[in-house]
Simulated assay, not measured.
Amino acid sequence: MPFSLRGDVSAAHSTDGLVLLDERAGRYWQLNATATLVLRALLCGASPGEVARRLTGDHPGLSVEQADRDVADLLTALRRAGLVMP
């Protein structure tokens, strides 16, 4: 399932990751480097499971189960904030 930023959400690079602006609500969201990597991969068509596996390759001490939960938690937070679709 492809993901996209909602049309009224702007993204800008920062020194630590990515800043999302919800223009409708006037709220900013700061993503760290790992959350930025996750969001970019999802926006490029990777599945949450693929992103989790990529994270475990980048962080050898991270289990697949924890990476799955972390990706799911981020995606849930972005959805609840109304930043991403679907």
Rank of each mutant, 00 (worst) to 15 (best):
G61V: 08
L74A: 08
D8M: 07
A41M: 10
E23N: 10
L20Q: 02
Q66T: 09
V51S: 03
S10Y: 14
G7F: 09
V19R: 04
W29G: 06
V9R: 02
G49F: 14
D16H: 15
M85T: 15
A81H: 06
M1D: 12
R27C: 06
S10G: 10
H59R: 12
Q66G: 00
P48G: 03
L55T: 06
W29R: 05
W29F: 12
G7Y: 10
V9I: 09
G49N: 14
C44N: 05
T36P: 03
E65C: 09
L5I: 04
L39P: 14
S4H: 15
D8S: 13
A41Y: 04
T15F: 08
V19G: 09
D8L: 10
V9M: 04
Y28A: 00
D73K: 03
G26I: 04
T56F: 07
F3N: 00
G45Y: 09
F3W: 10
G26H: 01
D68Y: 13
S4R: 15
L39I: 04
G49T: 13
M1G: 03
V51G: 02
A11D: 12
D16I: 14
V71P: 00
S10I: 05
M85D: 15
G45K: 06
D8G: 10
G82N: 06
G49C: 14
A12D: 08
L83A: 07
V51R: 01
R69I: 09
T56R: 01
L37S: 01
G17H: 00
Q66P: 02
G61R: 13
G7T: 11
G26Q: 01
L83S: 06
L55R: 15
L42I: 00
S47Q: 04
E65P: 03
D68L: 13
S10Q: 12
P60E: 01
A41S: 09
V38D: 08
G26W: 08
H13C: 14
A25V: 10
L39M: 09
V51F: 01
L55E: 08
Q66Y: 12
R54G: 10
T15C: 11
N32D: 14
D58V: 03
R40L: 08
A46P: 07
R27Q: 08
V51I: 03
C44Y: 07
G57C: 09
R54V: 07
T34H: 03
S47P: 08
Q30G: 12
R6S: 01
G7E: 12
C44Q: 08
R24V: 06
V84A: 02
D70Y: 02
G61E: 15
Q66A: 13
S4Y: 14
A81I: 04
R27P: 03
E65S: 09
A41T: 00
G82Y: 06
G61A: 12
V84P: 07
V38Q: 11
A77Y: 07
L78M: 03
A46H: 15
R40Q: 15
S14C: 06
S47T: 10
D68R: 12
P60V: 00
D70P: 04
A72D: 14
V64Y: 13
H13N: 07
G57F: 13
V9L: 02
A52D: 03
G61S: 13
D8T: 09
A12K: 08
D68C: 12
S4K: 14
L37R: 01
L43K: 01
E50D: 14
V64G: 11
L42T: 05
L55G: 12
L31V: 06
R6V: 06
D58P: 07
R79C: 07
G7N: 10
